Measured scan of single mutants.
Amino acid sequence: MSIQHFRVALIPFFAAFCLPVFAHPETLVKVKDAEDQLGARVGYIELDLNSGKILESFRPEERFPMMSTFKVLLCGAVLSRVDAGQEQLGRRIHYSQNDLVKYSPVTEKHLTDGMTVRELCSAAITMSDNTAANLLLTTIGGPKELTAFLHNMGDHVTRLDRWEPELNEAIPNDERDTTMPAAMATTLRKLLTGELLTLASRQQLIDWMEADKVAGPLLRSALPAGWFIADKSGASERGSRGIIAALGPDGKPSRIVVIYTTGSQATMDERNRQIAEIGASLIKHW
Rank of each mutant, 00 (worst) to 15 (best):
S236R: 01
D250C: 13
L38D: 05
H24Y: 05
A266P: 03
S128G: 03
F228I: 04
F6Y: 10
A222Q: 14
I45S: 05
L167Q: 03
R202E: 07
R176L: 08
L10M: 12
T116I: 04
S264C: 09
I259D: 00
R41F: 07
G279V: 05
N50Y: 11
R271P: 06
T261M: 15
L79V: 04
N173A: 11
M268T: 07
P12L: 14
A222Y: 08
F228Y: 15
L89V: 04
L218I: 03
S57D: 05
L218M: 07
Y44E: 00
A77D: 06
E195R: 12
M66A: 03
L89G: 04
P253K: 03
W163C: 09
D250F: 08
L247M: 13
M153R: 04
Q97Y: 13
M153N: 08
H94Q: 13
Q204V: 12
K144S: 15
N168L: 04
A246Q: 02
A84D: 13
R202T: 13
E87H: 02
G263A: 12
L188I: 09
L47M: 15
R41D: 05
T179K: 00
L73Q: 02
N134T: 02
A246S: 05
K32N: 07
L38K: 04
S80H: 15
I125R: 00
A77E: 06
D129V: 00
G251V: 04
G226Y: 03
R189S: 11
N98S: 14
N272K: 01
A245E: 00
E175Y: 11
A200R: 15
G242R: 00
L135Y: 01
A246C: 11
A280R: 14
R7Q: 13
V258I: 11
Q88C: 13
G85R: 10
Q265G: 14
N272S: 05
E210V: 15
D250K: 09
E56V: 05
A170D: 15
P224N: 01
Q88A: 12
H24L: 06
Q97L: 13
F228C: 03
R220Y: 01
K252S: 11
K232N: 00
H285E: 04
H285S: 06
A230V: 02
Q4V: 13
G52C: 02
L219Q: 01
V82N: 04
S122C: 12
L196G: 13
V29M: 13
R91M: 04
T158N: 00
V82T: 07
R273K: 04
R202M: 06
P12E: 04
A124C: 09
R41Q: 09
S221P: 06
L219C: 01
S80Y: 13
L38M: 07
P253I: 06
E237D: 12
P217A: 13
R241F: 03
E277R: 09
L137A: 02
R63P: 04
M67L: 12
N173K: 10
P253G: 05
W286V: 00
R202S: 14
E175V: 13
L89T: 04
M66K: 00
A230C: 08
F17L: 10
A183N: 07
K213E: 09
G242M: 01
D231V: 03
F13Y: 12
L219K: 02
L135E: 03
P25S: 08
Q265R: 13
R59S: 12
K109E: 13
L223S: 02
V42M: 10
I171S: 14
L223N: 01
C18A: 15
L218K: 01
R118E: 08
E87Y: 02
G263R: 07
D129S: 00
A276G: 07
G43T: 00
T186I: 14
P165V: 09
L111P: 07
D231I: 03
D250G: 14
A133P: 00
I206K: 08
L47S: 05
L199P: 10
R241D: 02
T139A: 13
R92V: 15
R238Y: 12
G85E: 10
L55F: 09
R255G: 02
A211R: 11
R63Y: 04
